[in-house]
Design a protein around this nucleic acid. Structure first.
Ligand SMILES: [Zn+2]
Ligand SMILES: [Zn+2]
Ligand SMILES: [Zn+2]
Ligand SMILES: [Zn+2]
Lengths: 181, 181
DNA sequence: CCTAACCATGTTACATGATAACAAGTCAAC
DNA sequence: GTTGACTTGTTATCATGTAACATGGTTAGG
C-alpha cells in the first residue's frame, strides 16, 4: 500500500497516520512546519530555484495553518511585513511555489496551500473541511488509476487531474460548533 | 458495468459510446441537444422548478457546443438577445441550472456547461480538452469509490467531489492543429 | 376583482481574483 | 565594471462573483 505511492520517507520517518491525516489529527505542528520547510529547501537545491525572502515568507505563511489561503490574504500578510503591497507580489511568489512543487493550488477555493510532502513530484487528492477550512492531502494514485481506466476507453489523454473533496473532518463531524484551532 | 452507475435510459436508448464520449465523437448534435432539453424539462417538472425564458435560453446556449462557457460569455449572448446585461442575470440562471442538475460548474475553468444526462442526480468526472475546449462527462462511480476508501481511513465525511482532468481528446491528439468544430 | 405573498428579473455598486506592462534593483559571469 | 538573467516593485486594467435593492409577474385567499 505504501510502495505504490512514494511519500516523504527521506527526511523523517512518518507513520501511516502522518501520511494521510496530518491536518485533521492533533500533532506537533511546529515540527510539521519545520520539516516541510527543510524538504522544500532540499527540493529547491535539486531543482535550482532560489529561495528568496518573499518566497520563503510566503511559504511560511501558508505553512502556519493547514488551510488554503487566498492570494490577497497572503498579500496582506506580506505587505504588513514590509514586502510589496501589489497583487503580483503574492501571485508571483505563489506561482513559484506551485511550479516547484512546494505548494498546491486549490481550484474549488481559488486559493493556495503549502505542500506537506514537497520531497518529490506528486499530485494528491485534497479533503477540504467546510467547517474549519483545514485541508488534507491524500495519495491519489488509486483514484487516478480509476480515472485513467475510464478516460482510456474514450481515447482521451489525461495530462493533469484535479481531485478535491469538500466535507467534514472528524473533529468537526463530532462537534458541529467551532472545532479546535 | 452499467447497473452500478445509472445513466439516461428513460428517454432514448444510448449505446455505450454515447454514454462516455458524446462530446468527442462525431454525432447528431441537434438530437443530442433536443434530448438534453427534453430530459431537463422532465426533471424540472418532477422537482417543481420553473423553466422560464432566461433559464431556457441559458441552457440552450450552453447546449449549443460541448464546451464550458464563462458566465460573462453567457451574459453577452443573453444581453444580445434582449435579456438583462448585468452579471446577476447570468449567474442566477446558471446557479438555477446547476442547483437543479441541468448544468455543471467546472472549477478549473471558472465556467459552466450543460449537463448531458440531466435525467437524475449524478456527479460525473470531466475530461476537458485543452486544444478544442470540448468537454466529456464520465460516470465517476469507480473513481469516487476509490476516493471514498481513502477518505474513510481518515474519518473525513466526503460530501461533494470535484474530479476534472485536462488533456487532449482523440481528435486533437491526432491532429495537433485545429480540430474539427 | 383585489390584494398579499412569493418569486423572477432587472438594476447599481462593489468585492474578490488575476494579469499585462513597465521600472528599478540584485547578482553572478565574463 | 559591464552585460545579462532574474527578482521585486509599481501602475493600470481585466475577469469573476455578490450584495442590496427596485420592479414586475403569478398565484392563492378574500
Ligand atoms: Zn501541521
Ligand atoms: Zn473541520
Ligand atoms: Zn452533442
Ligand atoms: Zn480536442
Amino acid at each position: 500500500m505504501i510502495t505504490s505511492q512514494p511519500e516523504c520517507d527521506k527526511v523523517t520517518p512518518l507513520t501511516d497516520t502522518d501520511r494521510t491525516t496530518p491536518a485533521f489529527a492533533p500533532h506537533d505542528h511546529s515540527a510539521c512546519e519545520a520539516r516541510a520547510l527543510d524538504e522544500a529547501a532540499d527540493r529547491l537545491a535539486e531543482q535550482g530555484g532560489r529561495m528568496t525572502p518573499v518566497r520563503r515568507r510566503t511559504l511560511e505563511i501558508l505553512l502556519e495553518s493547514h488551510r488554503a489561503m487566498g492570494a490577497y490574504e497572503v498579500l496582506d500578510r506580506l505587505a504588513a511585513e514590509g514586502f510589496g503591497r501589489q497583487p503580483p507580489v503574492a501571485y508571483r511568489a505563489l506561482e513559484f511555489l506551485v511550479e516547484h512543487g512546494l505548494a498546491h493550488r486549490l481550484q474549488r477555493l481559488n486559493a493556495f496551500a503549502a505542500c506537506l510532502h514537497p520531497g518529490h513530484d506528486h499530485a494528491p487528492a485534497f479533503l477540504i473541511c467546510r467547517a474549519c477550512d483545514k485541508l488534507a492531502e491524500l495519495p491519489a494514485a488509486p483514484v487516478r488509476a480509476a480515472l485513467a481506466d475510464l478516460a482510456g476507453e474514450t481515447g482521451f489523454a489525461v495530462e493533469r487531474v484535479t481531485i478535491e473533496a469538500v466535507g467534514l473532518c472528524p473533529a468537526c463531524a463530532e462537534n458541529p460548533a467551532g472545532a479546535e484551532a
